[in-house]
Nucleic acid binder design. Structure first.
Length: 587
RNA sequence: CGGGGUGUAGCGCAGCCUGGUUAGCGCACCUGGUUUGGGACCAGGGGGUCGAAGGUUCGAAUCCUUUCACCCCGACCA
C-alpha cells in the first residue's frame, strides 16, 4: 500500500478525554475513532491489527482442534429467560423488541446460544468432545465504559465452549486451552501471568485468568515472589498470618467503651494489636426475585473483607452496604456489632443490663472468616451501645459458619511455598472456566452415553478479549513517541520512507525496495507522501511500525537507513543488505 | 447508580463572569509559490444551527429553566 492513498488520520494532539497511552496512541495513530461512549470505528490500520490478532487466535485454536462458528449477535430473550440469566445479568444486557413484539437481546456472551446449538446437533457421546468457538461482536451496556478499547460497550471477543462426556475430559480440555492461550499471548509479544480467578456471574467450578502485566490494569493480582503462584485478589489465598506476640489477657466481660466504634480507635483504646479484635462488616445480600438478607461478616481487625469472596460465601447476586436503619431493624447496634450468641452467653452475667431474649433470634446470618477459627482472647462488639466484650473465646460458640472472607494483603505468606506475596496490576485478556453442567442442565442439553443413558454435557468455556488485546499490546509496547508494535500484530511490518518524494532517484529507489519487500512476502507500506522528512519520521514513530527503511540523502552513496522502532537505532546499509537484514528480522 | 467536570469548525482551545455590529486563534483542509534529514514558510481561501429546546431582553455563545451527550472519580464489571 501507498501511504498517500490510505486513510491514516494521524493527529498531533491527543484527544482531551484520553488518559491511557493505549487510548491516546490508538486515536492519534489513526487506528480507531470514537462514535459513542464505548463504541469505536476501526479505521484501516486498526482493522489490520485486529485481523492479525484474530488470525493468531484462530491459528492456535484450530491447531488445538477447535472449530470456528459464528452465532447470531441478536439473540432471542427466551433463551436467556430459560437459563435464568435474563434477570440476573441486569442492566448490562441490552434488551429490545422487533416489529412483532418479540423480545431480543444483544449478545453479551453466548453460552445460551452455543448450548442450544449443541443441543440441536450433538446427541451422542461419539461426537464428543467438541470445542466450538467464534470471534464475534459482543455488546454489554457497561455502566461506565472507559479507556478506549480497554473497556468498551461494543467489543470483539473470542468465546469458545467445549462439550464433554465427563468431568475428567473437560479438565483435560481446560488444560489444553490454558496451554493454547499461553501460545497465543506469547506470539503477540505479551508479558502475562496466568492467575487463579473467581468464577463470577458466569458460574462454574474453577477458572483462570490471563493477565497482561501493566500499571494501567484494572485488576489487582497477587503474585508470589518465591514461586509461580498468582491469583486475582478476588480469589487469592494465603497462609493464615502468625499471631502477634502479645495477646490481651482478660476475663470474659463487658467493657465500657463510650464512642469507640472503629477498629483503629478500639486498638488504641485497649492498646492491642488489631489482630485480636473482631471486625464486623454488615452487608445486605441481594438474591433473585428481589429477596435480600442482612449478613454479618466477622474477620480479624487486621484484615479487610474481600467482597467477591463474601458474595460467594452467601451465594448472593450482590452485596450492598446496609443502612443504619436496616441494621437497627435487624436488632444490631452499628459500631458495636458482635457475634450475638456470645452476647447471649454472657447475658446473665452480673452487672449486665437485662438481656433481651429477642436479640438471640436476630434475623441475621453470620459468617466467620477462617482466620477466626480457634480465636481466643478476642475483643468484639457487645451489640450494645458503648460496650465491647473482652476476653471473648469464639471456640465456645457452636455450629459457626466459616468461609475465606479476608483479602490477601501484600506481605502475606504464600500457601504454596511460604514466600512473600505482593500486588501487581493486570489487564484481563483471557478467562477460562470449568463450567460443568451449569448451563447444559437447565437448558436440557443432553447426549446419550455409551450405555444409552441420557446425560447433560459437561462443559468448559474460554474467552479472549480480542479488541482489548490491541490496547493491552500498546500498554506494554510504547514509549513517549508512540506505539511499538511487535511484528506479529503490526499494522505493517515495515514502512519504506522516501525522504524527498520529488527527488526522482529517491522515489524510484524507494519504490524498488518496496516492490522487493512485497515480493518477499513482507507486509510493507510505502510512505510516498509529499511531506517533509521529519513529518514522516514522526508518523512512523507514532504509528509504531516495527521497522522503517529510509531512502534519503545517502542514496547518492548507495546507502539507505534501517531503523528499529524499538531502539530507534539507525544503521546505514547498502540497499540489498538493508533488505536482506529486514528479511532476517521477519523470520 | 452517587459525586465532579466539559460541550464554540475535523482536532485542540479562547470568548461567557460584566449581553451589543461580520464569533476568534492554533493545527488540519483547498489554491498558488518557495522548501525537503526531524511535525517548514509566504500569500490567498473554504468550513460554525456556539450540544438541543424553551424563556428573559430592543438585542443571547454570554443571563435563567429544562434536557441530551461526552469525560473523570467511585460503585459495578465472563
Amino acid at each position: 500500500m501507498k501511504f498517500s492513498q490510505m486513510l491514516i488520520p494521524t493527529l498531533k494532539e491527543a484527544p482531551k478525554d484520553a488518559v491511557l497511552p493505549s487510548h491516546i496512541y490508538l486515536v492519534r495513530g489513526g487506528f480507531v475513532y470514537q462514535v459513542a461512549s464505548g463504541i469505536y470505528d476501526f479505521l484501516p490500520l486498526g482493522k489490520k491489527v485486529l485481523d492479525k490478532v484474530r488470525a493468531i487466535v484462530k491459528d492456535e485454536l484450530d491447531a488445538a482442534g477447535c472449530q470456528e462458528v459464528q452465532l447470531g449477535f441478536v439473540t432471542p430473550a427466551d433463551l436467556w429467560k430459560r437459563s435464568g440469566r435474563y434477570e440476573k445479568y441486569g442492566a448490562e444486557l441490552l434488551r429490545f423488541e422487533d416489529r412483532k413484539g418479540n423480545e431480543f437481546v444483544l449478545g453479551p456472551t453466548h453460552e445460551e446460544m452455543m448450548v442450544e446449538l449443541a443441543k440441536q446437533f450433538v446427541s451422542s457421546y461419539k461426537q464428543l468432545p467438541m470445542n466450538l468457538y467464534q470471534i464475534n461482536l459482543k455488546f454489554r451496556d457497561e455502566a461506565r465504559p472507559r479507556f478506549g478499547l480497554m473497556r468498551g460497550r461494543e467489543f470483539i471477543m473470542k468465546d469458545g465452549y467445549s462439550f464433554h462426556a465427563d468431568r475428567e475430559d473437560m479438565v483435560r480440555e481446560f488444560e489444553l486451552m490454558e496451554a493454547t492461550y499461553r501460545k497465543i499471548f506469547t506470539r503477540m509479544g505479551l508479558d502475562f501471568r496466568v492467575v487463579e480467578a473467581d468464577s463470577g456471574a458466569i458460574g462454574g467450578e474453577g477458572s483462570k485468568e490471563f493477565m497482561v502485566l501493566a500499571e494501567s490494569g484494572e485488576d489487582t493480582i497477587v503474585v508470589c515472589e518465591g514461586c509461580d503462584y498468582a491469583a486475582n485478589i478476588e480469589a487469592a489465598k494465603r497462609k493464615q498470618p502468625e499471631a502477634p506476640a502479645e495477646a490481651p489477657e482478660a476475663e470474659l466481660n463487658r467493657f465500657h467503651t463510650p464512642g469507640i466504634t472503629s477498629i483503629g480507635d478500639l486498638a488504641k483504646f485497649f492498646y492491642v494489636d488489631p489482630y485480636y479484635l473482631v471486625k464486623a462488616v454488615a452487608k445486605k445480600a441481594l438474591y433473585d426475585e428481589g429477596k435480600s438478607a442482612i449478613v454479618l461478616f466477622f474477620l480479624r481487625g487486621s484484615d479487610e473483607l474481600q467482597e467477591v469472596k463474601a458474595t460467594n460465601a452467601v451465594g448472593a447476586n450482590e452485596l450492598v452496604d446496609a443502612t443504619e436503619e436496616e441494621l437497627e431493624a435487624a436488632g444490631l447496634v452499628p459500631g458495636y456489632m458482635g457475634p450475638v450468641d456470645l452476647v447471649r452467653n454472657i447475658g446473665a452475667m452480673e452487672g449486665s443490663p437485662p438481656f433481651h431474649e429477642e436479640k438471640a433470634h436476630l434475623n441475621v446470618r453470620m459468617i466467620f472468616d477462617e482466620g477466626l477459627k480457634d480465636a481466643r482472647q478476642m475483643i468484639c462488639g457487645a451489640n450494645e451501645k458503648d460496650y465491647h466484650i473482652v476476653g471473648a473465646d469464639l471456640t465456645v460458640l457452636k455450629d459457626l459458619e466459616y468461609a475465606d472472607l479476608a483479602q490477601t494483603q501484600e506481605g502475606d505468606v504464600c500457601l504454596q511455598c511460604g514466600g512473600k506475596l505482593a500486588y501487581t496490576k493486570g489487564i484481563e485478556v483471557g478467562h477460562i472456566f470449568q463450567l460443568g453442567t451449569r448451563y447444559s442442565e437447565p437448558l436440557g442439553a443432553t447426549f446419550l452415553d455409551s450405555n444409552g443413558k441420557t446425560k447433560p454435557f459437561v462443559m468448559g468455556t474460554y474467552g479472549i478479549g480480542v479488541s482489548r488485546l490491541l490496547a493491552a499490546v500498546i500498554e506494554q509496547h510504547h514509549d513517549e513517541r508512540g506505539s511499538i508494535w511487535p511484528v506479529s500484530v503490526a499494522p505493517f511490518e515495515v514502512v519504506v520512507i522516501v525522504g524527498n518524494i520529488k527527488d526522482d532517484a529517491q522515489r524510484e529507489a524507494g519504490e524498488a525496495i518496496y516492490e522487493k519487500l512485497c515480493q518477499a512476502g513482507v507486509d510493507a507500506l510505502l510512505d510516498d507522501r509529499t511531506e517533509r522528512f521529519g513529518f514522516k519520521m514522526k508518523d512512523f514513530e507514532l504509528i509504531g511500525f516495527p521497522y522503517a527503511i529510509v531512502v534519503g540523502k545517502k542514496l547518492a552513496d548507495g546507502l539507505v537507513e534501517l531503523v528499529d522502532r524499538q531502539s530507534l537505532e539507525k544503521r546505514e546499509l547498502p540497499i540489498d543488505e538493508a533488505v536482506q537484514k529486514l528479511l532476517e528480522y521477519m523470520q
